[in-house]
C-alpha cells in the first residue's frame, strides 16, 4: 500500500497525487536499476517480505525494532553540495536575514579533510550522526533533546529552553541555534528563535515512507535503511564492505556510517 494519509490529503491537494505517482514511478524505475547494482538482487526481494510498509506508515508509532541509519560512500564522485541544497530546501533553511554566517543554521555541511603528512584529501557530508548514546540527549535538562524509538535524534522545540548545553556536548558540531525571529517556515520543519535544532533525518519524510532529502539528492552515494535488520541493504553493505563512524573512539555508536574515511 502507499500511504493512506497521503491519499486522503490528495483530495484537498490536487498536486499531491501527481507527486505521489511520480515518486512511485521513480521507485519502480530505480528498483530495476538497483537489481543490477545491488548484489544479490534476491536479498532485496526477501526483505520486501520481511518488513511490510505498515511498520512505517503514518498511523504507527516509531518502532524500537528499527534503527534508521545511513551509509555514506565518500569514494563516490558526488557533489555533496547537492545534498546540502536539498536539505536546505527541505527544511527551509538559510532564511535568516540578520544572522552572521557563523550564526546561521546548517543541518548538513561538507567537510574537507586533509592528511597533513601524506597530502591525501577528501570531502564528506557531516550531519547529526544520530548516536545511540547521544550526548545531547544525556545533557538536555528538560528532555527536549530526544531519541525516538527508531534511533532518530531530534529536538522537541516545545520543550527546548535554548540553554545550548546540547551544542556544547555534541562532538560533531551538528547542532545550530536559531539566532533570530524566523518566518515562512516549511510545514514539516517548524523552526524558531531561541531553540536549538539539527538534522532530524527528515523524520516526517521517513514517517511518510519517503527517503531523507539528502539521500535522494546523493545520487546513490548515501544509503538509508534499517541497521537492525540484517537483511537490509545498508546492513548487507556494511557487513560486506565495512564502514567507519566519525570519532568512533567516543563509543557513541552513531547511526551514520561512512565508507572511505
Amino acid at each position: 500500500m502507499t500511504n493512506n494519509f497521503d491519499e486522503k490529503l490528495s483530495e484537498s491537494q490536487d498536486s499531491e497525487q501527481a507527486v505521489e505517482s511520480s515518486r512511485r514511478n521513480f521507485i519502480f524505475g530505480s528498483v530495476a536499476a538497483a537489481g543490477l547494482t545491488v548484489a544479490p538482487g534476491m536479498m532485496l526481494y526477501q526483505t520486501a517480505n520481511a518488513r511490510s510498509l505498515s511498520d512505517f506508515s503514518l498511523n504507527e508509532k516509531a518502532s524500537s525494532q528499527v534503527r534508521w541509519g545511513m551509509l555514506v560512500d565518500t569514494t563516490k564522485q558526488v557533489d555533496w553540495n547537492k545534498c546540502v541544497d536539498a536539505c536546505n530546501k527541505e527544511h527551509g533553511l538559510n532564511n535568516e536575514t540578520h544572522s552572521r554566517d557563523d550564526q546561521k543554521t546548517q543541518y548538513i555541511r561538507v567537510v574537507d579533510v586533509k592528511n597533513k603528512t601524506t597530502g591525501y584529501s577528501m570531502s564528506l557530508p557531516v550531519m547529526c550522526q544520530h548516536c545511540e548514546s547521544a550526548p545531547c540527549v544525556d545533557v538536555c535538562p528538560t528532555g527536549a533533546s530526544m531519541k525516538r524509538a527508531d534511533g532518530i535524534v531530534l529536538v522537541d522545540r516545545h520543550r527546548c529552553i535554548g540553554c545550548r548545553y546540547c551544542m556544547m556536548a555534541c562532538p560533531y558540531k551538528a547542532r545550530s541555534f536559531v539566532h533570530e525571529v524566523l518566518t515562512d517556515q516549511t510545514e514539516n520543519t517548524p523552526r524558531g528563535k531561541g531553540c536549538v535544532e539539527s538534522c532530524n533525518m527528515c523524520v516526517t519524510r521517513i514517517d511518510n515512507g519517503q527517503l531523507p532529502a539528502c539521500v535522494e539528492a546523493s545520487e546513490g552515494a548515501i544509503i538509508f535503511g534499517d541497521l537492525n535488520d540484517p537483511q537490509s541493504d545498508i546492513s548487507q553493505l556494511l557487513a560486506k564492505h565495512g564502514g567507519k563512524q566519525i570519532r568512533a573512539d567516543l563509543k557513541l555508536n552513531p547511526g551514520v556510517h561512512y565508507q572511505g574515511i
Binding site: Q106, V111, P171, K173, R247
Partner: peptide
C-alpha cells in the same frame, strides 16, 4: 576547534 578527525586538517562552511 573540535577534533572531528584527529590528526587531520579539516575545513568546512561551518567553521570546522
Amino acid at each position: 576547534p573540535m577534533e572531528l578527525f584527529p590528526g587531520m586538517e579539516v575545513s568546512s562552511s561551518f567553521y570546522d
